[in-house]
Each structure stands twice: as structure tokens, then as C-alpha cells.
């Protein structure tokens, strides 16, 4: 009796569950409205406007679909999409390598924590340092690759300034820095695959390869799906590495390093009066990402098993 009274009294003093909960939960929601929703609405509006100067919104004019027409008829924009997709080739390679490495790590071996520790290091390295690191490796005049190939000054391959090798280099860099995340996620997922399934398979006389393809692979399919979805969203917004490794004009040889985000960045911040076109291009990219993600989800029903 008494206890209940005290309990009620104390409860009255405080805000009550309804109020407290609302206040506590609201901070990130307010942040989202201020820094997510309002800009998003503005982004939609801007895509249909001519915005003079470097974002002089007060003098903006409504221009209908002009921005979209300009962006979609711009060859550079289409090239930036192709460039981005070509660089994204590193993603499936990353996923496969990460799975293989994580699988090897589950074996009974010595020094597992050492290997695991080493493999994760690229994840904490900034893209800027990674770019500089690989520029050193691929450098035409003093890079280790050319030296290993035994090339001289005259025969040296300009890896990063030649259109035929540039994208390949960026894919390699992407693989180097992109596998760490997958190794960690697969590491966690592999330990969760049901042990008894392996034992049952062993009794049935299945070899280790068959076990891998019939038990392990389906077992970690949610992780593969997660890596693919988030990886694609990230890959479609690639910017830092190609921007840092640009040869000369900043977008690589032949503009091969001009990714979609790079294209948007240029229009918005390097050119004048182009904010509207940049917003239109960003909207196209957002729709593209949405479609790709939706396809991903639909197709996933065929190969991802959640049990």
C-alpha cells in the first residue's frame, strides 16, 4: 500500500512515460527534420529551378524540366555513370574475397587473431591516405610496379594517367580497402551457421566443397545481401579516391575518374550558376539508387534465406 503510494507520488513528479519518452526520442528526429527533410524538399525544388551564382536561392527561377534536359543530354553525365559502374566492379570481388578469407579464418589455425587484426587495418585508413599510398605504388617514374616489371624510364607504364589502365588501378585500390568490412561481417555470420547441419552432412558423406556451397553459402546469404546492398549504395556515390587520384585536371585521364558524385560536385561547387543542374543530377542518381536497391530486394527473395 504504502509503497504504491510513494511510487505513484514519485511518478507524478516526473514527466511520466509519455512525456519523457517523447522528449528523449525526439532529438534525432528533430535533427532529421532540420538536416534531412528540409534540405530534401529544397533539393526537389532546386532540381526544377535555375539557381544563379553559388547557390543564390533568393534569385532562383522556376525553369521546369530544363535542368533535367541539360543533364540527361550531357555526354559527361552518361560517362560519369559508366565510370562509376566500372569502378563498382571491385564490389563483387571484395565480397567473394572477404568470404573466402573469413572462411579460412574459421579453420583451426594458429595466429588467427593476428591475421584478423591485420586484415581490418585498411578499414580505419582514410581514403586520402589510401590514395596517396597507391599513387606511390602505381607511379610511372618511381613506382614499385614498374620497377618489378623491369621497365625503364622510356618503357614505363603510366598506370594512373593512361585511360586504359586507370580504372583497373582504381578497382584494385577498391579491393584493397573494401574487403576489411566484409571479412568482419562474414566472420560473425560464419560462427552463426548451424553446426549441426555440417555434422549431418558429414554423416551423409558430403565433401567439404559441397558443404561450403550447400550449407555455408546459404547460411551467410543475409550477410552477402547486406554487403551487396550497402556496397552498391556506397559504390554509386564514390568520390574521394578518384578525386584524389585525378591526373592533371582532377578527373583522371580522359575523365575516367569522373564519378557521378564528382560530376555533381563539379557542377555545384566548381562551376557557377549550376546548382540547379547539380540538384537535378543528384535527383537522377537518387532515383537510380532507389531502383537498384529495389531490384536488389526483389531478386534477393530468390537467393537469400533467413532461417
Amino acid at each position: 500500500m504504502n509503497l504504491e503510494k510513494i511510487y505513484q507520488k514519485r511518478h507524478k513528479k516526473s514527466l511520466g512515460e509519455n512525456g519523457s519518452g517523447f522528449i528523449m526520442a525526439s532529438i534525432p528526429v528533430i535533427g532529421f527534420v532540420l538536416f534531412g527533410m528540409i534540405p530534401l524538399i529544397l533539393a526537389l525544388a532546386m532540381a526544377f529551378m535555375y539557381v544563379p551564382g553559388k547557390g543564390n536561392i533568393a534569385d532562383a527561377e522556376f525553369v521546369g524540366f530544363e535542368n533535367f534536359k541539360e543533364v540527361l543530354s550531357d555526354e559527361m553525365f552518361w560517362q560519369s555513370i559508366v565510370n562509376t559502374l566500372r569502378m563498382a566492379i571491385s564490389l563483387p570481388i571484395c565480397i567473394v574475397v572477404a568470404l573466402v578469407v573469413a572462411f579460412l579464418l574459421t579453420k583451426n589455425i594458429k595466429g588467427r587473431s593476428f591475421f584478423r587484426g591485420v586484415y581490418f587495418v585498411p578499414y580505419v585508413c582514410c581514403a586520402v591516405a589510401v590514395s596517396l599510398m597507391w599513387e606511390l605504388i602505381f607511379n610511372q617514374n618511381h613506382g614499385i610496379i614498374n620497377s618489378w616489371l623491369g621497365l625503364t624510364r622510356d618503357t614505363a607504364i603510366p598506370w594512373l594517367t593512361d585511360s586504359s589502365t586507370y580504372t583497373l588501378c582504381l578497382i584494385i585500390i577498391g579491393i584493397w580497402s573494401g574487403t576489411a568490412y566484409g571479412i568482419v561481417l562474414y566472420g560473425a555470420a560464419l560462427t552463426n551457421v548451424n553446426r549441426s547441419l555440417y555434422e549431418a552432412a558429414k554423416v551423409d558423406g558430403a565433401g567439404s566443397l559441397r558443404c561450403f556451397f550447400n550449407i555455408t553459402l546459404p547460411g551467410v546469404s543475409p550477410t552477402s545481401f547486406y554487403l551487396l546492398t550497402t556496397g552498391l549504395i556506397g559504390a554509386l556515390q564514390e568520390f574521394t579516391r578518384p578525386q584524389m587520384i585525378g591526373g592533371g585536371n582532377g578527373a583522371g585521364p580522359n575523365n575516367d575518374g569522373l564519378t557521378i558524385v564528382f560530376y555533381i560536385y563539379r557542377r555545384a561547387f566548381e562551376y557557377n550558376n549550376q546548382m540547379g543542374q547539380a540538384a537535378a543530377a543528384a535527383l537522377v542518381l537518387a532515383v537510380f539508387i532507389l531502383i537498384v536497391t529495389a531490384i536488389n530486394f526483389v531478386v534477393s527473395k530468390r537467393w537469400v534465406s533467413y532461417d
Binding site: I38, L40, L42, V51, Q237, I260, I264, A282, A286
Partner: peptide
Amino acid sequence: TILLTPTFII
């Protein structure tokens, strides 16, 4: 990416 330009303007 879509928030890049509007946030800059704001």
C-alpha cells in the same frame, strides 16, 4: 549526395 546542394544553400 542529394542533400549536398540544398544543405550548402541553407
